[in-house]
Structures are given as C-alpha cells and as structure tokens.
Design a protein around this nucleic acid. Structure first.
Length: 254
DNA sequence: ATGGCAATAGAGTATTGA
C-alpha cells in the first residue's frame, strides 16, 4: 500500500503531469493540493480512466484539495467542522480502514501578517479536530502541504530563513503540537539523503541550485507508523516541462 | 532592499504563492 501527497499548483495546468506520474507510480492513494478548480470543472473522467476514484473540494483561483484512490472512498468530510473557513483546504475520507486527511495549510505570507495569524489559528483548530479524529480512527494519516519546514535540516539556507515564514518558532510549535497528538513524520523514520526538499522557488534557478524547503509531509498515527516501511520524495516531476513547484512525497505501508 | 517565476483573472496589471 502506497500513499502520497502532491501540491500540483493548478490541476488544470498539471493534469498531464498527474496522469504521467500516476502511470509510473500507481500509488493507492494520492492527496492533491492547490487544484485551483471549482468542482464543476474537476477532471473526474480522466482520473477515473486512470483507475482512480476521486473526492474533491475546490474553489475558484485558489486552494482546492482532492483525494484519489484505487479503493472505495467513504465518509468524506470537507474542511474542519471546528473551523469556519471559506477556503477549501481540507478533505478527509475513510479508505481501506484508514482515515486519510488531505490538508493544504495556509501559506502565511509573512510573520505577523494577518495571513500568518490565520495560519496559526487554522493549525490550532486542526490540532483540536484531529485529536477527535484520531480517537475515532486509530489508523490516521495527515498528508499535505504544511507550509512549514520542521527543522533547519529541511531548509537549504537556515540562516537566510531563520525566523521567516515557514520556519518561525510558532509555526514549528504548531507542528510539534501535531506530533504531541501521536503523529510522526514518515520521512524521518528512515535514513534520507541530505538536503532533501519538496519545494523549490521557480525563481533564481531554485531547483537547479537545490535552494529548497521540505514543507510537504506525511504524518502517521502510531498504528500506521508501525506499518510504515519506507518514505521518499520524488524529485523527478520538478524536471519536467512547466512543472509544479512542489514534488510528490510517498509513504509505503505494509 | 528588491526582484526574479508561475498561475489566475481578465484585458493591463494586480494578487498570491513559498
């Protein structure tokens, strides 16, 4: 069983990449972020034809999340019931006995900005809701674009990013609060190459110079951590023509 | 200190992302 997450930065533009990637990596479950599509325009037929069922929750221009699955998708919940939010950033579903939560955490723009405080409030509400979800579903995975680099080793230049958005102490504390619920970063369960990132700026030759951040994560409950046998980042799609600025993260479960 | 790239909306340029 393989589960994965990918911020595609517009599914309208990236559908060919998505289908190409799935053909090479036929994961069982894939969470998408930044689909940027209203539900009426979601490419259901193409995704079904690739062998996947799909649940989605979108809006115009921004945000939007989806879960693709080879197994039936049940008990879909859109957004956090504990947090009133016009932005479509969360999709939860039960698949194969697991609770899968797909999340697109707010960017935050700049420390202390209005969007930053929205990000922290959003993360606090996520924690509170997940505490309940985990009690009801011991086998839970939280996959998505967290817009937080957990540690300095997840940042290409920790000095340049110190205290800045994605790296500030309150953001990292919010991630620690999720860990305190019993969620573990699947990527760090295993030995990994140094300077592993999941996002690179489109500008300044960010990818070629490997000026990246690791901000896309798969967090696993204890029951799923015990089943996890591997986790990796697939940099390859970042080399394709007109790529997303993020790449997929994949975890293997037995 | 700022812009640099990409996508969107919409019709020139502003906004957002990370």
């Amino acid at each position: 069983m393989k589960i994965a997450t990918w911020n595609v930065n517009s599914l309208n533009v990236r559908l060919p990449h998505l289908l190409q990637w799935l053909a090479a990596h036929p994961v069982d479950i894939l969470c998408l972020q930044e689909t940027k599509l209203i539900d009426e325009k979601f490419p259901v037929a193409q995704i079904n034809a690739a062998g996947y069922q799909v649940a989605f929750s979108g809006q115009k221009t921004y945000n939007g999340v989806a879960i693709l699955s080879r197994l039936p998708i049940e008990d879909v919940v859109k957004n956090n019931p504990r947090f009133e939010d016009a932005q479509q950033r969360i999709l939860a579903a039960t698949i194969g006995g697991m609770r899968i939560v797909c999340a697109y955490v707010p960017n935050g723009q700049a420390v202390d900005s209005e969007k930053y405080h929205y990000k922290l409030a959003w993360l606090s509400a996520l924690r509170d809701w997940l505490a309940e979800e985990m009690a009801a579903h011991p086998q839970l995975a939280l996959l998505g674009d967290y817009n937080i680099a957990p540690e300095d080793r997840d940042v290409h230049d920790p000095a340049e990013w110190a205290g800045k958005i994605h790296c500030s102490d309150p953001e990292r504390a919010a991630l620690t609060a999720l860990s305190a619920l019993g969620l573990t970063d699947a990527f760090r369960l295993f030995e990994q190459p140094e300077k592993s990132y999941s996002w690179w700026d489109y500008r300044m030759l960010g990818f070629r110079r490997n000026r990246g951040l690791r901000i896309d994560h798969i967090l696993l409950s204890a029951a799923l951590k015990a089943r996890c046998t591997g986790c990796s980042i697939d940099r390859d799609p970042r080399t394709w023509e007109q790529p997303s600025d993020h790449v997929p993260v994949i975890a293997t479960l037995n």
